[in-house]
């Protein structure tokens, strides 16, 4: 009986691993692009960086 329960638990774990996340292995997130690297972004009334 114990062996049977272990097998069921293993199968459930495998199923969860296979069917779960739709996300890529490494999540994406952030701000980036091709520019601007030398931004002078302090403008009156607008937040300065960083």
């Amino acid at each position: 009986m114990r062996r049977y329960l272990t097998l069921v638990a293993l199968m459930l774990t495998l199923a969860a691993c296979q069917g779960g996340s739709t996300r890529a292995v490494e999540p994406d997130g952030g701000i980036g692009g091709t520019g601007a690297r030398d931004d002078a972004t302090c403008v009156e009334g607008v937040t300065c960086l960083p």
Binding site: A24, E26, P27, D28, G29, G30, I31, G32
Partner: peptide, 10 residues
């Protein structure tokens, strides 16, 4: 390819 540097900054 997710950008690791961009995510670090975020």
């Amino acid at each position: 390819i997710p950008s690791a540097p961009a995510r670090l900054i975020a």
